[in-house]
């Protein structure tokens, strides 16, 4: 083991850098889903579609900016605009028109409403953006690459991957933690997450909190998509693949736990990139193996609280 480590320490270092960037993207998608689940108790299957729509919107805005000859840094504005637009438009629309009507119904009905929404949005994306890969990489080019020494060699990494993605993920984590613990609205959200009945009894307007949380979660999904858009080509079906991974993160993390989501995303990111180097065959199953292993030891998830059992 020790000799293996010393022989491969350089590669492990590279795997660490790659894993961090990947973990950042996974975290951005999963944290919104986790937050929404914590408050609404709905597993939002359409979260992946919001991710995809955020990515497509960011690319469209970015391409529009580029066609108007705006400077490259405006690409970053496009990312934020896309997230805000999806959060502010689609979020309330979905919550008001659909989810609100099925609160308190059986879990399976709530799940299926979002599954139906997912099916509809899959086709909507196709109608709006077509099927050819869409991509814009202004944010990536704007920052260029950084050479990381590797023995006698250097490996170019994009600054976007090295700094922007982990940076934004970390900032999101800190801001969310601060928001949930230090602001009134945040504490109310936590209160609803922990015990909705008690919170409502104390006069909290749960309906408003749910609307707010869902829109916020939608915005986070879209931001995740927007952040992924400069490095990837957008094609139909990306939403379906993103959502399964986020599910694994949410269950592993513990319900509504943002720190749990961060830690899980980190484990998945690092586990995956190490697998790509040393055991590529296992790459795809890494998230699920982590999930099963964690839940074996901690059935309520990494940071989950054991819920009181109803009598």
């Amino acid at each position: 083991m020790a000799t293996w480590l010393s022989e491969n320490s350089l590669l492990l270092g590279l795997a660490l850098l790659d894993g961090l960037a990947y973990a950042a993207l996974v975290f951005m998608v999963a944290v919104g889903l986790n937050l929404v689940f914590g408050v609404l108790r709905i597993v939002n299957v359409a979260h992946g579609s919001l991710f995809a729509i955020g990515a497509y919107t960011a690319a469209s805005i970015g391409l529009f900016f580029a066609s108007r000859g705006l400077p490259a840094w405006m690409g970053y504005v496009a990312l934020v605009l896309a997230a805000v637009a999806v959060g502010a438009v689609l979020g309330p629309l979905i919550e008001r028109l659909l989810l609100r009507r099925i609160y308190g119904h059986e879990d399976v009905l709530q799940l299926l409403v979002t599954f139906a929404l997912f099916m509809i949005l899959e086709d909507v994306q196709k109608l709006v953006w077509g099927v050819q890969p869409v991509s814009q990489d202004a944010p990536l080019r704007f920052l260029g690459t950084v050479d990381i020494p590797f023995g006698d060699d250097v490996i170019p990494f994009t600054a976007y991957q090295l700094f922007v993605l982990p940076g934004i993920a970390l900032a999101t984590l800190i801001a969310l933690a601060w928001f949930l613990r230090r602001t009134l609205t945040g504490r109310v959200i936590v209160a609803v997450t922990t015990d909705k009945e008690a919170a409502t009894a104390m006069g909290i307007d749960a309906a408003r909190i749910m609307l707010l949380t869902f829109s916020f979660g939608a915005g986070l999904a879209a931001l995740g998509g927007a952040l992924a858009s400069p490095t990837t080509a957008l094609v139909p079906g990306i939403g379906a693949q993103t959502i399964v991974l986020s599910f694994a993160v949410v269950a592993t993390a513990g319900l509504g736990q943002i720190e749990g989501a961060a830690l899980t995303a980190l484990m998945i990111g690092l586990g995956r990139s190490i697998a790509v180097y040393f055991a590529p065959e296992f790459e795809v199953v890494v998230p699920y193996l982590i999930m099963v292993a964690v839940l074996l030891v901690r059935p309520q998830g990494l940071f989950g609280v054991i819920e009181t059992r109803r009598v």
């Binding site: 590279l14 894993g19 990947y22 490996i155 990306i238 790509v276």
Partner: peptide, 14 residues
């Protein structure tokens, strides 16, 4: 349908 190849690209660069 993978959406990110940065790890693979790093490995190829190395």
């Amino acid at each position: 349908g993978a959406t990110d190849y940065s790890t693979e690209v790093t490995r190829l660069l190395a």
